[in-house]
Design a protein around this nucleic acid. Structure first.
Lengths: 337, 337
DNA sequence: CTGAAAGCGCTTACAG
DNA sequence: CTGAAAGCGCTTACAG
């Protein structure tokens, strides 16, 4: 369609002035501005972003790397990111990685190739680390790692107080009289697993209860892994009186299996989750869980990256968000026996 | 970092040859190719997409306009889109519109401004219609409308056989002896509501049952609207023996309210959903519903748009996908009375 | 098979 | 406040 030259010709000014009118109106005289804007309106001129981005070296795109977009917790985080990004004129480039490193890398390349300005990474990886560190200084590295975060100070992070949340949930169960609390963790190498397990141990210690390694089972955050570990708990000589799952999906899987086995939750065994996804409250029994401020985390991430991209180093490089313990029907007093 | 000139200098060829080596290797002699690729490797050269896209007038970005990314059905569709798009070197620009026209339009502008090549639209709108029609011919209009589709042939569409699906679900209930089947629709103006209602009526007609307008309640696809209509059904002089909800969330809302009112599903009243979201099978009772091939729909959409962008007009402009009736525990024989 | 050169549509010092 | 001009890093006819 029409370009900046057409607008210039039709309004009898130079392309420079058209450009200024559109990008720095205050620097142009009112008369000129009006003349130009009228023509822009008339011929329905839209500046060519391809040219503009090329010229300014910016894309106004942010890659969001998420292990699985169909995960309801992640999708809330993404909504938070996108709302805030959009307000600042940035768009979200969705990178559903299915946890595959090669896919993560192919998206990270987009930053190097200037198809995107930065990355918000929802898992504890740093794709193309060497390449990125070579190209950006510590301060300007356009990456924000959220939800499941790398240790150290290599990238800015934003996450829940996972230790505190797991400690609080465990204490909640202890207060209900539970002494044998099974756990279904995430993948062994996940920082989430490490932190939440640490919180669990802290609560036990505080209550003077001993830690039993046998009660700890490794899941992978899927419903199925919850189902599978449920069987393991039921097979124990001393079946735990409660199970703390490190996300809601696994808690639902555990509940489902218990239901099939004719075991009642929470009468015989309590089950707790983590995240407070939408369906946690619709579940039967409704799930006791930890609420994460998902949208706020997303919002904070977008803001953090936005600042980095504008050259403003974040005042806090590692933000920790508070949680809420949500008690519902899936946890109750420990059974006698 | 380094640009195509650096590569040219270091490998002793022209920039044109470097460009060809990277984009049309077969046209370059093997010797030259090797020389160039070696340098590319050595200095870790990544072509500048900003320049490349500007030059070629392509962005390899597709805007996906979705009313709500946190909706689990939509997120599966998006996953399908993104997987297929990624295979064809396209990336997804996520546009969570919250059903706001202004947000839809701001994303649609990205296509006009060449920040994206095309749009996949998950609701029955056509943002910036006049502007788009002015700029593109019927054949080349880079839009694919899926899931909830506009009537007519203005844009290519991909959707479920909604009429057939609703008819099948209704027939399923009729076979179970239900004669008073309540319905919770989507918004009145939604084509989904219209089509599914048509399917419902077809099934009634086929069974010789009369259509009762009073049994039709308007929802908005939210859990809450399900809850609200549940009360309306319970307040009727003749409470229906089953309720067919036009999505799973509303079915869950209906069930939740029934549960609170001490009414058992499916013994007193059957409840059916639509979509078969992940949690439908985890729900208590597990939901009878219609499975939509969400990822395939997304995949087909990505393919359709890909062809349009390559200048290949789709062989079918309006694709209809088959459904599956999934019978679970939330529907059963109609109660006597 | 390769190179010289034009040009994509903007923005931005620089000069006035 | 405005204009002439350079230039961003590529691709692509065109010529050889």
């Amino acid at each position: 369609m029409s370009n900046i030259q057409d607008v210039a010709k039709l309004s009898g000014v130079s392309v420079a002035t058209v450009s200024r009118t559109l990008n720095n109106p205050e620097v142009v005289s009112e008369k000129t501005r009006k003349k130009v804007l009228k023509v822009v309106e008339e011929i329905n001129y839209y500046p060519d972003s391809l040219a503009k981005n090329f010229r300014t070296r910016k894309t106004y795109m942010i890659v969001v790397l998420v292990p699985d977009i169909a995960n309801p917790f992640f999708s809330r985080v993404i909504r938070g990111i996108q709302n805030t990004a959009h307000l600042n004129n940035y768009s979200i480039l969705l990178g559903d990685t299915q946890s595959q490193i090669s896919i993560e890398e192919s998206y990270a390349k987009m930053v190097i190739a200037k198809q995107a300005d930065g990355i918000i990474q929802l898992s504890a990886h740093f794709p193309l680390k060497d390449e990125m560190l070579k190209r950006y200084s510590h301060e300007k590295l356009p990456i924000v790692n959220i939800c499941e975060c790398l240790d150290g100070d290599i990238v800015p992070t934003i996450q829940l107080d996972n230790i505190g949340a797991a400690k609080t949930m465990t204490s909640h169960l202890i207060e209900l009289g539970h002494k044998h609390i099974g756990v279904v963790t995430g993948p062994a190498k996940s920082p989430l697993t490490k932190d939440r397990l640490a919180g669990y141990r802290l609560a036990l210690e505080e209550a003077g209860l001993s830690f039993d390694d046998n009660l700890i089972r490794t899941g992978d955050f899927s419903v199925k892994s919850g189902r599978d570990t449920a069987d393991e708990f039921l097979g124990m000589s001393q079946v735990p009186t409660s199970v703390f799952c490190f996300n809601d999906e696994m808690a639902m899987g555990v509940c489902q299996r218990f239901k099939e086995a004719g075991i009642s939750v929470p009468e015989y065994i309590s089950v707790a989750g983590f995240d407070d996804i939408n369906f946690a409250s619709l579940h039967s029994p409704s799930l006791t869980t930890i609420r994460q401020p998902a949208e706020e985390i997303g919002k904070a991430a977008a803001l953090q990256l936005y600042n980095i991209l504008r050259g403003i180093p974040p005042s806090e490089r590692h933000i920790v968000f508070p949680f809420d313990l949500i008690t519902r029907d899936s946890t109750g007093p420990a059974r006698k026996s």
